[in-house]
């Protein structure tokens, strides 16, 4: 694959934004500034960026509880995301949703989801309406390895297949559904094998190689857009952090985590771009610094934003 500099620069920059955003909110949580919990996708940035970058701006995504990466990759305003984390009125959901429910309707991100697998059937409805309206837009529905064992997965993938819907399902296999490893939760080698059961194409890629993800996603997107129906794309990756803030990490070893950290998707991509002469080391450092500034500004925006007015608590239940 001949690397296009402009695309690679944008992808690397987004991966830095995601990484630094999550490291920052992790720190804000530790300092007591974030209420509740969060599910970090540090280590999975290539999966989010490689997939979403295969879409056009007018395409849709449905995300998951571990969805910060999808949201940023889709072009979210970091200020509004950070404000949502801090529960502020200026946040994407006016402080009503928090980390697990961020949606950017204008940016065509139809939302993260607090229920594992909850978004998989929604993608059927989005795909169905796009098809009924004869647009050439598509929807990308994310979920994790855990969600692939939900009943909704079966119902939805079958419906997407029989109706040849413009859907790309991206299964981010990060090896664990909370503490349950994929080795214990599946009798099959690859989750993408399940695509056979629905008569759709199933592909498994190295989810830590952003270019491999991008190429596979681009093929799936083309298939969906050209009337070829849905694809199940499995990105094999790893979450470096615990499931959520309650995780005591009793189910995996430090050695395992360290082994995956040596395959850091950002480091791998940066090194490849340097090796192939696409960017210089100085440029790469510049992208990282720019991402840090963006996130720091977002923290300031969020901190200085107003809390929701308690008198508005009943708003938004009904249209």
């Amino acid at each position: 694959m001949k690397l296009k500099r402009e695309l690679c620069v944008r992808m690397l920059s987004k991966m830095y934004e995601i990484r630094i955003f999550e490291e920052t909110v992790d720190d804000l949580f530790a300092r007591g500034l974030v209420h509740g919990t969060m599910h970090l996708s540090i280590g999975q940035e290539a999966s989010a960026v490689g997939s979403v970058f295969a879409l056009r701006d007018e395409d849709y995504i449905l995300s998951t509880h571990r969805g910060h990466g999808h949201c940023i990759a889709k072009g979210a305003d970091i200020n509004l995301m950070m404000a949502e984390f801090l529960g502020k009125e200026t946040g994407y959901c006016r402080g009503r949703g928090g980390s697990m429910h961020i949606a950017d309707i204008e940016g065509r991100n139809l939302g993260a989801n607090g229920v594992v697998g909850g978004g998989i059937p929604l993608a059927v409805g989005v795909g169905l309406s796009l098809k009924m309206r004869q647009t050439d837009e598509i929807v990308m529905g994310f979920f994790g390895d855990g969600a692939a064992n939900q009943g909704a997965f079966h119902e939805a993938l079958n419906m997407a297949a029989i109706w040849t819907l413009p859907v790309v399902y991206v299964c981010e296999n990060n090896q664990y559904g909370m503490s349950m490893s994929t080795n214990r939760a599946f009798k099959i080698e690859r989750i993408a094998q399940r695509a056979d059961g629905y008569g759709m194409v199933g592909v498994t890629v190295d989810g830590n190689d952003v270019l491999e993800v991008y190429e596979a996603a681009a093929k799936a997107v083309d298939r969906a857009r050209s009337g070829g129906g849905p694809t199940l794309l499995e990105c094999v990756t790893y979450r470096w952090k615990g499931h959520s803030k309650s995780d005591q990490e009793r189910y995996r070893t430090k050695d395992e985590i360290e082994a995956w950290k040596r395959r850091d998707p950002i480091k791998l991509f940066r090194e490849r771009l340097l090796t192939e002469g696409v960017i210089t080391d100085q440029e790469a450092a510049g992208f990282e610094e720019q991402a840090s500034r963006t996130i720091a500004e977002a923290v300031e925006f969020a901190k200085s934003s107003a809390e929701p007015d308690p008198d508005t608590i009943l708003e938004g239940v009904y249209a």
Binding site: G125, S129, M132, A152, N158, M159, I162
Partner: peptide, 25 residues
């Protein structure tokens, strides 16, 4: 297309309806 038979998949039906409604259908 507009009177759409589905498989026996109630969660799928409700999800499809909800997703389509989010899109303005």
């Amino acid at each position: 297309d507009r009177v759409r038979d589905t498989p026996i998949s109630e969660a799928g039906i409700m999800g499809a309806a909800t997703g389509a409604a989010l899109m303005g259908m």
